[in-house]
């Protein structure tokens, strides 16, 4: 399961959905793709049905072009708005509610432009997106 998330209307914040859309077009066997603005609590039920989950998001701080980091289930601090749920929280809920502990990692694609509106990626983000897609497809081809 690959979940790409972010706001496509906020420039490079759309990297996650852009990754998901590109991956969907590749139609790789055994890979299910989802995209959304943000993660939500019901994603716990979704990820609980898979062996491996990769969360794909734009990053303001990852090393370019991207980073891959293992994720573990955790309990989140309660914030002040329902408008954000972390990948670790989704995994935590999947574990607590559905007894599922899928292997999980975060693919953090470095973005450059986040301040403003527009359905477009910066040139750096496009480049980083292409390299992350290449990495991903090679990795899963190797597994096959």
């Amino acid at each position: 399961m690959v979940i790409g998330y972010g706001n496509p209307g906020r420039l490079d914040d759309g990297l996650g959905p852009a990754f998901a859309e590109s991956l969907r077009e590749l139609d790789l066997p055994g890979v299910t793709v989802e995209s959304n603005y943000q993660l939500n609590i019901e994603d716990a039920e979704l990820v609980s049905r898979f062996d491996e989950v990769i969360f794909v998001d734009a990053s303001v701080s990852a090393a370019a072009p991207f980073e891959v980091n293992a994720l573990k289930a955790s309990a989140p601090m309660v914030g002040f708005s329902s408008h954000s749920v972390s990948a670790e929280s989704v995994l935590g809920l999947a574990k607590e509610l559905f007894g599922a502990e899928p292997s999980a990692s975060a693919l953090a694609i470095r973005g450059r432009s986040f301040d403003g509106f527009g359905e477009r990626l910066s040139s750096e983000a496009r480049s980083n997106l292409a390299r992350s897609l290449d990495y991903f497809t090679r990795r899963f081809s190797a597994v096959d």
């Binding site: 998330y5 972010g6 706001n7 209307g9 906020r10 490079d12 914040d13 990297l15 603005y37 943000q38 998001d57 734009a58 990053s59 303001v60 701080s61 990852a62 914030g79 002040f80 708005s81 329902s82 408008h83 954000s84 972390s86 975060a106 953090a108 973005g111 986040f114 509106f117």
Partner: peptide, 14 residues
């Protein structure tokens, strides 16, 4: 529950 409306939620921001 203020709406964070058009917020970006990129990693590293929370």
């Amino acid at each position: 529950d203020p709406c964070l409306s058009c917020a970006t939620h990129a990693m590293g921001r929370m």
